[in-house]
Design a protein around this nucleic acid. Structure first.
Ligand SMILES: [Mn+2]
Ligand SMILES: [Mn+2]
Ligand SMILES: [Zn+2]
Ligand SMILES: [Zn+2]
Lengths: 139, 139
DNA sequence: ATTAAGAATGCAACTTTGTTGCAAAAGTAT
DNA sequence: ATACTTTTGCAACAAAGTTGCATTCTTAAT
């Protein structure tokens, strides 16, 4: 244990650097999805803003994190499950929930996105579902 | 006709101004959802950037337009159906589609978002579904 | 039609967010 | 230990979004 972050990096064929380990740690510690801003607040004193941008980008491409769409211009990120890391492509078909009270966005890992039928001629590649409301901590 | 935009404004108890009419016209003419940027391109020479921000904000609040979440930090906007304007609150439970080829985002007005069961303790207020893929024009 | 009150707009100044090129530093493989 | 490659930090910049305030435009009442 304690080297979980390092393992993720190695499994993704990424070199192990201090900033990557730290940012992974932040995700592993978090119980909700994080915006760039959140991460910056937690470690901008240690690492450059640009590094955070680039690290998130890298993590996305490697299937370490996935992003969650939003209507507030604050894309949030959360750790993927192992399947994304091992297969190398994203496989996150769970619903996301944004609480209007506490503002937290979480992955509902057990709630699968229900199938939907598109009109003729449309091909589906990815699908995203975000629900707003009140979370169980705030109710 | 030709005063459709004006009607919308009056029905929403908004004063009728040149910029609001113009921005509504842009939406009425568009066959896809528009980002702030798209609107700016079409009329920044006539109206100030700030006015566009404020107008979109106002339209959102009045239920004239709704926004579509995204993972690219470019929230897009589309006209609501009449129900939103008359009831004053949003009622847009259709699926949105983003084409990876042409980049256009459209409302699939006939495709309803399928129901989903949340875990105990969560209360749903709004729901958003965005599908990515290839649209019928690009296939 | 005038006018007075309120609302919307434009402008300027500013903050925040995101991007790019390049030199220095750190990581990896031999 | 060394050479090679990747990552980082910095600086400079560009784009996006916000705020306060003076001016202009709308609306509704006279
Ligand atoms: Mn998730
Ligand atoms: Mn729509
Ligand atoms: Zn909550
Ligand atoms: Zn298309």
């Amino acid at each position: 244990m304690k080297k979980q972050g390092e393992d993720i990096l190695k499994n993704s064929a990424l070199s192990v650097t201090a900033s990557r380990k730290r940012i992974l740690e932040i995700f592993l510690d978090a119980d909700n999805a994080l915006a760039h801003q959140d991460i910056e607040t937690k470690c901008a004193d240690q690492y450059d803003r640009v590094t955070i941008y680039r690290t998130l980008q890298t993590f996305l491409e490697k299937g370490i994190i996935h992003n969650i769409p939003s209507t507030d211009n604050m894309v949030r990120y959360a750790l993927c499950n192992d399947a994304c890391i091992t297969t190398g492509h994203h496989n996150d078909n769970h619903v996301h929930f944004r609480c209007d009270a506490c503002g937290k966005t979480v992955c509902l890992d057990d709630v699968n996105i229900p199938p939907v039928n598109l009109p003729k001629g449309y091909t589906m590649k990815e699908i995203n579902m975000v629900v707003n409301g009140i979370c169980k901590s705030c109710k």
